[in-house]
Amino acid sequence: MGMDSSTQPETPHTTGSQADRMPLLQIQELHTQFETKQGTVRAVDGLSLDLYEGEVLGLVGESGCGKTMTALSIMGLLPGNGRAVAGAINFEGKNLLQCSGEEMKKIRGGKIAMVFQEPMTALTPTMTIGRQISEAMEIHLALSREEARERALELLEHVGIPSPRARFDNYIHQFSGGMRQRVMIAIAFSCEPRLLLADEPTTALDVTVQAQILDLIKQLAQEAGMTALFITHDMGIVAGSCDRVAVMYAGRMVEVGPVDDVLLNPRHPYTQGLLGSVPSLESKPGDRLYSISGLPPDLVSLPTGCKFWPRCPLADERCKEEEPLLEQYGNSRAACWKVMPLREVLGE
């Protein structure tokens, strides 16, 4: 709130086609906070982000940097004492932060759907999976119970659950983690939403299943021409699935741009660190990889200046005092006083 960092909304600047499009979702200066006994936790602290029709945007960052809270702010489902205290989230001409409960109910599940991280706990144990899929369609698509059932069976088939008819009346305890996530995906796609928020949909799954689930989401999103916010902390997933990527640190965005640009030419030391921890094809055994030391900052009392300086190998006095704003570098934008290509850091 007190910080007046990058106030200007992010403007489309990348590939020519995107420049003409209006963003489907526009997050402006979002501040999401938790009031706790220890003080105000700034989970999201002045985040601005645009999502364009039909694109898949990856949102990356270490655990605890505010990715989930960003998604939950969009959904209006912040837990307990969490509040989106300032900013705006514009979607289809409405500011979601100011929508009434009734309006939000129409948007949730109907226009914006979310896939959660924990398939083991995110489904109701005392309800058949079939009903859990069909109930949203009864509401948003005004289908009868029978019609919703038929659609749910198709969806189950579509997300790759064998013998859907037999599985329809099962409970989740009879499903594996991967299967549960397929059910979650079926629920999310059931009402043909315009926007999908996928919060680390594969993190909790076995490595062998991860790729399948990822492919499933990609395929379904492509078929439906859906816009998606893909939250992950895995740069490999970003490389394989996303069009653009936004990097978050301590509740704010530090770098954003087309995937190719950001991954091949990361500007921000934090992004470089994140990438450094992913061995790439070029890296030979013995290469020293730069990875980030230290811990993420305490969100109750953030450092002054650049929030990354306590962990940044390049930090100097200016970094400690002045906060850098997002600036354009080539096709992507980064917030750092000392932007430089990755090779210079690694190459010595």
Binding site: M75, L77, P79, G80, M104, K105, K106, I107, R108, G109, G110, A113, M114, F116, E118, T121, A122, L123, T124, P125, E135, A136, I139, H140, M184, I187
Partner: peptide, 15 residues
């Protein structure tokens, strides 16, 4: 009250 599946149900836009 605080369970994930309740949040999922809300995320569906159920009344």
């Amino acid at each position: 009250l605080g369970k994930d599946f309740v949040r999922t149900a809300r995320a569906k836009g159920l009344p």
